[in-house]
Design a protein around this nucleic acid. Structure first.
Lengths: 170, 170
DNA sequence: AATGAAAAAAATAGGAA
DNA sequence: TTCCTATTTTTTTCATT
């Protein structure tokens, strides 16, 4: 994917040692290559047996189990979950909501509020005009509206700006 | 050999042209309360045993297993995955990017473009001024910028507006 | 410290009622 | 659906490098 990016006229010589798509693995934390492959395998299928994983990383089942235990204890793997097709569960209406908050709202307040509403599937503070973006998922538009009203009722929320998801592409 | 769903085989002459695996979603929302609780339990911990789940929904382990099998076959549960703390794996920089597109860009084009870039973790078309929102996740700010540049180079993209995630609250 | 092998305990996968 | 059972997997224990 080498895209000609010549927009800049500054013809500073490019550093020849800099690989563009450097997959530099500085090994954050203390995961080795086997740990990474175990994590990848579990992300792919969290219910496969340790023996199966072991076969793909050339380790015995107990050895894999110990590493998984260690990864969980270290907080690298935080849990295992079922991947559900939300549309099949009926909560098919989605929205992104920008939250504008009062002057000295802190992230903890937003977080606490987010946890109160089950329709909130994600929340984060952001750069830009808004203070936070939350993702909502609801059964239908009426449900979404109701959830949004509840959010707007939070004392620190001064204004919201929503966009509704028309279709999910990924 | 074992056809689980033959309960109502009317002895009407079999239609030879009938696709066997007609994924006829006959009842997209026909999960009963127990199914929902099983799904919730698995979302909470995908590696707990069927017996444990059974204890919480007052069902035997084999009964739970059959329901899970059915939920998977129906495409409601699409898989099981490990939940990983992304910051421990390196891709810690996130952004929401609004995409403004040329006049008659269709969703398929956006979808194809989204698939080309590994940094895109989600993409959807939305109401409002922008045509789509994509979520990016990258190793660091430089990586994010590079991914954004690649996105902006798509021929149908006229303009983008990004906000960077400061911290994830959920 | 980390691994593999073996044994014990637990879970799973089907079958029958 | 539950019950039952053979098979597989998990988990502990122990010996090895």
């Amino acid at each position: 994917m080498n895209d000609p990016q010549d927009g800049e006229t500054l013809s500073r010589e490019t550093a020849p040692t800099e690989p563009l798509s450097a997959h530099a693995e500085p090994a954050p934390g203390d995961l080795d290559e086997i740990d990474r492959r175990i994590v990848a395998a579990l992300m792919n299928d969290a219910r496969q047996s340790f023996a199966t994983i072991g076969a793909s990383v050339a380790l015995s089942a107990p050895a894999v189990k110990r590493r998984v235990d260690r990864l969980r204890a270290a907080g690298i793997i935080t849990g295992f979950t079922a991947v559900v097709d939300p549309s099949r569960l009926g909560w098919t209406t989605e929205a992104f909501v920008e939250l504008f908050c009062t002057g000295r709202t802190n992230p903890d307040q937003i977080q606490q509020a987010a946890r109160k509403h089950p329709e909130v599937t994600a929340a984060c503070t952001v750069t830009g005009e808004a203070d936070a973006i939350v993702q909502l998922r609801a059964k239908d538009m009426a449900h979404l509206e109701q959830a949004l009203e509840r959010l707007r009722a939070e004392p620190f929320v001064t204004r919201t700006k929503s966009v509704v998801v028309l279709s999910r592409l990924t």
